[in-house]
């Protein structure tokens, strides 16, 4: 198994939610791939479709209200078209998921040990004793110091950080090839955040899994990711290695994101914010450059009519051509707002 083996390849994925009999795509033509041993970060503002993308990969959308089209190729199978029963063989076993809110992601009426063991019972042929041993092993692996005691406890008896560790233990219980982590640290306080990120990195190094890490925190990205995809309004607008993206962000949206991070040593105390908001699903313009409405000082002609991804340097892709002409509003003749 080589280290650059392609694990997952997503091609032109569209995931739409039904709102009053019409489907609105929250993920609108996403193409991206994930390699073994890689942490791919997906960043973007709230509502840009990050969770929708994650949920599509692991097939947890409600089929009655959601339409998933395009390709999510894993081991030659298109997960987007897989039926529920077959998906259950992959879910939990080959793809694990870590959720945002550890406080609500565990069943309050079930002991920790039972919740971890549940997946093992279905995906492995282990005996009851073996599973129990594996539960202790897993708890130990995620840094819980008293596995035997914790396994018997209920979620409400654990702190948020501990619960997130338990959820990670569930996600890695069957040694999945892919781990999807949807904002795994957002609900935790800063010191715990760092611990959980370290844990994820360690686990990844140990298991060689590919991780899709969803976050809106560029600090998190800098700390753990290998590659980054920046999402805006359902599309990926820039993709590059972490080093490249941080050194050379190109797309106006990416640059605005960086610009909006408060700088400790900055002379300018004013926080730069991106004008406007992410358009809601039903109001999303489906043609032209989707970010153009938020940078009105860049003239229409600078955008592509149908923006596509352009490879500007090896592995660095940017959507639309507007980045070549972009400047911040305040840079133009000194207008500040």
């Amino acid at each position: 198994m080589n280290s650059t083996e392609q694990l997952l390849s997503i091609n032109n994925l569209h995931t739409g939610f039904r709102i009053k009999d019409t489907y609105f795509d929250a993920v609108d033509g996403v193409s991206i791939s994930l390699k073994r041993n890689e942490i791919l970060a997906v960043v973007g503002e709230s509502g840009c479709g990050k969770s929708t993308l994650a949920t599509s990969i692991i097939g947890l959308h409600d089929h009655n209200k959601t339409r998933v089209e395009g390709e999510i190729i894993y081991k030659g199978i298109n997960l987007a078209k897989l039926d529920e029963e077959k998906f259950n063989k992959i879910r939990g076993e080959e793809i694990g998921m870590i959720f945002q809110d550890p406080l609500s992601a565990l069943n309050p009426l079930m002991r920790i040990g039972d919740q971890i063991e549940e997946g093992l019972a279905f995906h492995t042929k282990m005996s009851k004793e073996q599973r129990e041993k594996r539960v202790f092993e897993l708890l130990d692996q995620v840094g819980i110091s008293n596995p035997k005691r914790i396994a018997k406890q209920f979620p409400h008896q654990l702190s948020g950080g501990m619960r997130q560790r338990v959820i990670i233990a569930i996600a890695i219980s069957c040694k999945p090839n892919i781990i999807i982590a949807d904002e795994p640290t957002t609900a935790l306080d800063v010191t715990i955040q760092a611990q959980i990120l370290d844990l994820l990195k360690d686990l990844q190094a140990e298991t060689g899994a590919g991780i899709v890490l969803i976050t809106h925190d560029l600090g998190v990205v800098a700390e753990v990711a290998d590659r980054v995809a920046v999402m805006y309004a359902g599309q990926i607008i820039e993709e590059a290695s972490v080093e490249e993206l941080f050194a050379n962000p190109l797309h106006p949206y990416t640059r605005s994101l960086f610009n909006s991070i408060p700088q400790m040593n900055s002379e300018n105390e004013k926080l730069q914010v991106i004008q406007g908001i992410v358009p809601s699903l039903t109001n999303l313009p489906r043609t032209g450059c989707r970010f153009s409405a938020r940078i009105p000082w860049i003239s229409e002609g600078m955008h592509e009519e149908n923006p596509t991804m352009h490879e500007v340097s090896p592995g660095h892709l940017v959507r639309c051509t507007c980045w070549q002409h972009f400047h911040f509003e305040s840079e133009e003749g000194g207008i500040t707002r």
């Binding site: 947890l60 259950n88 939990g92 076993e93 992601a105 919740q115 549940e118 997946g119 569930i170």
Partner: peptide
């Protein structure tokens, strides 16, 4: 959320 977690286990 916890039902989603349960589903993510593939049971």
């Amino acid at each position: 959320d916890y039902v989603r977690t349960a589903r993510s286990k593939g049971i």
